[in-house]
């Protein structure tokens, strides 16, 4: 029997412990998983040179769902995720646009020659200024952008095959389906 008096005693104690539990959960939350403010917004407007020296703007972005990958020749995790992008573009699964972030042009060029170039083109951002507009923390980061140029998802750190399969692929599929449905109608 749980009398009123007993409830009166238990209530503050249970409130206290649930508060402690909430704090404990908060303590172990992964800060890196913070969603980007840019999700749901257009890719910031840009008019920049690629590392090959040609001028590109938002109009040069693919008119379909694509990946925007922030990379640098100095960045070791970028080298680790590189094979994933290579195989994605080899299989023609999704176009990948690169942002060469805070790097030197000749080093970036050498890096692509050595490891292969999966990118449609790589926007040169030596000062990191375009990175600020995108809310970039640091390389590597990968944004999923839809056909209208709206950012749908941001992934911080390495995008390997399993991240692609488990995180990106379901998103890509769900973004692609409504379009097909519309065409069918």
């Amino acid at each position: 029997m749980l009398g009123y008096e007993m409830l009166k005693r238990l209530l503050p104690i249970s409130a206290f412990f649930s508060f402690i539990a909430a704090l404990a959960v908060g303590l172990f939350l992964e800060n890196k998983d913070l969603p980007s403010v840019l999700v749901g917004k257009q890719v910031p407007s840009f008019s920049l040179k690629t590392i090959d020296g040609s001028l590109v703007t938002n109009n040069d972005l693919p008119g379909e769902i694509f990946l925007l990958n922030v990379w640098g020749s100095y960045c070791l995790p970028c080298l680790i995720e590189h094979p994933t992008f290579m195989s994605l573009t080899e299989r023609g699964e999704i176009p990948v646009v690169g942002i060469n972030y805070r790097d030197e042009l000749n080093l970036a060029d050498d890096w692509l020659k050595e490891n292969g170039d999966p990118f449609l083109f790589s926007i040169a951002d030596p000062s990191g200024r375009f990175g600020i507009d995108l809310g970039v923390y640091g390389a590597p980061e990968t944004y999923l952008v839809d056909a209208e140029g709206i950012i749908r998802y941001r992934h911080v750190s390495v995008l390997n095959d399993s991240v692609w399969r488990e995180v990106f692929l379901p998103l890509v599929k769900s973004l692609r389906t409504p379009k097909i449905a519309l065409v069918g109608m």
Binding site: R102, S127, G128, R129, G131, I132, V136, G138
Partner: peptide, 9 residues
């Protein structure tokens, strides 16, 4: 890196 860029900004 970002901190440096943001300070410059």
């Amino acid at each position: 890196g970002v901190a440096e860029d943001l300070r410059r900004e």
